[in-house]
């Protein structure tokens, strides 16, 4: 599996994600109010928090699906600052997007392509990988997420959980250094959540650096190295899961946990 999902062989001390002074405004609305974050290679960071707290926006800022209003983001050595000259920024965005795979709440599989087509699309068109090579890799990934027999199905014939697993395989096929998960299980029926979190857990175990926004506290507790509670655009509390769940320090954290547990 290690040849499919490349594990960063960097010095464990050097962070692979480095966020500094990140602000995001939607018009007058100040959504992210200056946050910093370092993520080490292989680390799994889970962001939880109340709705409207800016979790998803933060995650989408990491690969510039939302453009930050201020601050800088460094992923695997590529630095982008907000308000860079446009041409330079575009180049940097392309670079980080190839390093950061993303999985969406609504899966966003391409409905006009089969599962296999979805997976090989980006490697072939973006990286110029040959079709046969991409197919070989895609089949490996499909097997890894347990969907070998669905390779020629169109997304409309897959369950939500299966679609999300294809989406994960699709992101992995680009050989990203980090993976961003934006509420990957929120659109799923409860009994399908497990099959997706299982895949994510295996991915974490293989040493993938992951940033996950989720409401699945079990996942956070079992898999995360660090849990961040984000509320009102700032980190309310950052701690290892046991500490945060069992012994929260901040009032805001206690409130949130009391609310959902």
């Amino acid at each position: 599996m290690t040849e499919v999902i490349s594990t960063p062989k960097q010095d464990q001390g050097e962070p692979i994600i480095r966020v500094r002074g990140l602000h995001k405004y939607f018009g007058a609305l100040h959504v992210i109010k200056g946050v910093d974050l370092d993520v080490a290679p292989g680390e799994v960071v889970v962001v939880i928090g109340p709705s409207g707290g800016g979790k998803s926006t933060f995650l989408r800022c990491l690969n510039f699906l939302e453009e930050p209003s201020a601050g800088s983001i460094e992923i695997d050595g590529v630095v982008i600052k907000a308000r860079e000259p446009a041409r330079e920024q575009r180049r940097h965005i392309r670079e980080i997007r190839q390093k950061a795979g993303m999985v969406f709440q609504q899966f966003n599989l391409f409905p006009h392509m089969t599962a296999l087509g979805n997976i090989i699309e980006a490697p072939v068109t973006v990286k110029g990988v040959s079709k046969s090579e991409a197919t070989e890799k895609a089949e490996e990934l499909l097997e890894w997420v347990g969907l070998s027999e669905k390779r020629d199905e169109y997304p409309s014939r897959l369950s939500g959980g299966q679609q999300q697993r294809v989406a994960i395989a699709r992101a992995l096929c680009m050989e990203p250094k980090i993976m961003l998960f934006d509420e990957p299980t929120s659109a799923l029926d409860p009994e399908l959540i497990g099959e997706v979190t299982d895949v994510m857990e295996r991915l974490a175990n293989e040493g993938m650096t992951m940033a996950v926004v989720t409401h699945e506290l079990h996942f956070a507790r079992d898999v995360a190295d660090r849990v961040i509670l984000m509320a009102d655009g700032v980190w309310a509390e950052v701690a290892p899961p046991q500490e945060l769940f069992d012994n929260p320090k901040e009032e805001r954290t206690k409130q949130f946990l009391a609310h959902i547990l």
């Binding site: 997007r97 969406f104 992101a171």
Partner: peptide, 17 residues
């Protein structure tokens, strides 16, 4: 849907692709 565009962009595809 916008999600389709985002998914493609997140995979590194440029505007034309």
């Amino acid at each position: 849907s916008l999600g389709q565009r985002e998914a493609a962009q997140a995979l590194g595809m440029d505007g034309f692709q």
